[in-house]
């Protein structure tokens, strides 16, 4: 057996791969569900926070800034571990899925809020004044004039940040979440063969590479043309 054959037999062992393919696919379903949930709740909550912040109520804004800063400062893995191992001590038990979802949603929420807020504040005062001078209310101005311009500015940074954070679903492995990496890791220790890891790597590329390529396209498309 040549070295190449040995390599193939070790890292791309078809028998092992066939055996654990269902597990990896199951892990992919969990990863997809989790990622979609995080995107919806994280970006949604971030937008809501940015809108509340635009009302300029001092104490509320201090609270928002603190929460956003907190979840931008902490490593996502620390948040996941803290929620998963910490909450039971407070009498609340959160599953691995819920812990990972909650942690990464909070992180994405915080980054999204900052990005939305930067977008809103980058729209010139004159836009507010022109709209208000024609009698539009604060809310009408925000939704009809400011947000459509601000959101355009946020598309590219938000897409990049969203990819970086949803990739973090792999961190769920640490709290025994049965997503792709978790499934692959246990398959490796059961079969004593690294092929499931190679499948996991391929699975992540299948899921995220199209998103990354799409993001490149979006970035080019939404570059602000004046």
């Amino acid at each position: 057996m040549s070295a190449w054959d040995r390599f193939l037999k070790t890292f791309f062992n078809t028998e092992v791969m066939a055996k654990y393919l269902p597990d990896i696919l199951q892990g992919m379903v969990v990863t997809i569900e989790l990622a979609l949930l995080i995107v919806v709740s994280g970006i949604g909550a971030g937008l809501v926070l940015a809108l509340i912040r635009s009302l300029a109520i001092r104490p509320v804004n201090w609270l928002i800034i603190f929460v956003v800063d907190l979840f931008r400062s902490l490593p996502p893995l620390v948040i996941i571990v803290l929620i998963y191992f910490g909450l039971p001590a407070a009498g609340i038990s959160a599953s691995a899925f819920v812990s990972t979802w909650l942690s990464l949603s909070l992180v994405l929420m915080s980054f999204a809020e900052e990005i939305f807020w930067a977008g809103i504040t980058s729209i010139s005062r004159g836009q507010w004044e022109a709209a208000r001078s024609t009698g539009l209310s604060f809310g009408q101005t925000l939704f009809n004039v400011i947000l459509p311009q601000a959101l355009r500015l946020t598309v590219a940074p938000l897409t990049n940040r969203t990819i970086a954070i949803t990739k973090g679903t792999a961190l769920g492995t640490v709290v025994a979440l049965h997503e792709i990496l978790g499934m692959a890791s246990s398959a490796v220790s059961n079969s004593y063969n690294p092929s499931p890891l190679m499948m996991a790597a391929a699975a992540y590329l299948v899921l995220f590479l199209p998103v990354v390529v799409g993001a490149r396209w979006i970035e080019a498309r939404f570059a602000w043309k004046r």
Binding site: T10, I163, K167, G168, T169, L181, L197, V212
Partner: peptide, 23 residues
């Protein structure tokens, strides 16, 4: 660049740590 933007760093780390010994 796109490869590593798509690849979770933890997966890369596990691949090196748990995969390479097999080689």
């Amino acid at each position: 660049v796109d490869f590593f933007r798509a690849f979770p760093p933890l997966v890369l780390l596990i691949l090196l740590f748990a995969g390479l010994p097999f080689a």
